[in-house]
């Protein structure tokens, strides 16, 4: 119980009134005074343990040490960020190449159109310049004459790419006029 009071008094944690009362009882009670002196002795012994001589060079060199460490950290940071940047760029290039490769191989329209153009060209050369297209896949079911000029359009038509009626009519008109020219009528 006394120890709590000693600690509080020593720690200056008593109110003014409590402090006065404690001091009065200290003066009146010899045993209490002895116990308190003993407590203060222990406190002083404890503080004595902290009075130590040290090598001052350690503290004198501290700012230099800190600056060296900081510059090392900066270098490390630069190396790390360069490495991260490089690896990121490599990854980006890698993904772009994969994307390009996929988009080329997935683009199937182009080869089919090209194939159709080729086959139409072959037909043209076999049967002369004028061929009636009887392609059953044709939605228009219209006989169309193929000239080199319209080979590409026919090829597109074969692949179910929509052409307007006007376009088709135009083709037929042109084909007929060519036929007339050819027959000399």
């Amino acid at each position: 119980m006394n120890e709590d009071l000693f600690i509080k008094y020593y720690d200056n944690d008593l109110t003014d009134e409590e402090k006065k009362l404690f001091e009065i009882s200290l003066h009146q009670n010899e045993n209490l005074m002895k116990a308190y002196s003993n407590f203060v002795d222990k406190q002083n012994k404890l503080k004595e343990l902290t009075k130590i001589n040290v090598n001052t060079a350690y503290f004198n060199n501290m700012p230099v040490k800190i600056h060296q460490k900081l510059s090392k950290e900066k270098k490390k940071f630069i190396i790390k960020s360069t490495a991260v940047g490089l690896s990121f760029s490599v990854l980006v290039i890698f993904f772009i190449s994969i994307y390009n490769y996929n988009s080329i191989s997935n683009n199937t329209n182009m080869p089919i159109i090209n194939r159709s153009i080729e086959s139409t060209k072959v037909n043209n050369s076999n049967t002369g310049n004028f061929i009636t297209n009887l392609n059953s896949n044709s939605r228009t079911k219209t006989n169309k004459v193929q000239s080199p000029k319209f080979v590409t359009y026919n090829a597109i038509e074969d692949e179910d790419i929509e052409l307007s009626e006007n376009d088709i009519d135009e083709f037929i008109d042109q084909t007929q006029s060519i036929k007339i020219l050819k027959s000399g009528k």
């Binding site: 404890l46 004595e48 343990l49 009075k51 130590i52 001589n53 040290v54 090598n55 350690y58």
Partner: peptide, 18 residues
Amino acid sequence: DIIQDLDDKLKLEKLNNI
């Protein structure tokens, strides 16, 4: 250690133990 004196070392050891 920056403490070279033996007595000081003992003092600090005592404090550490506490």
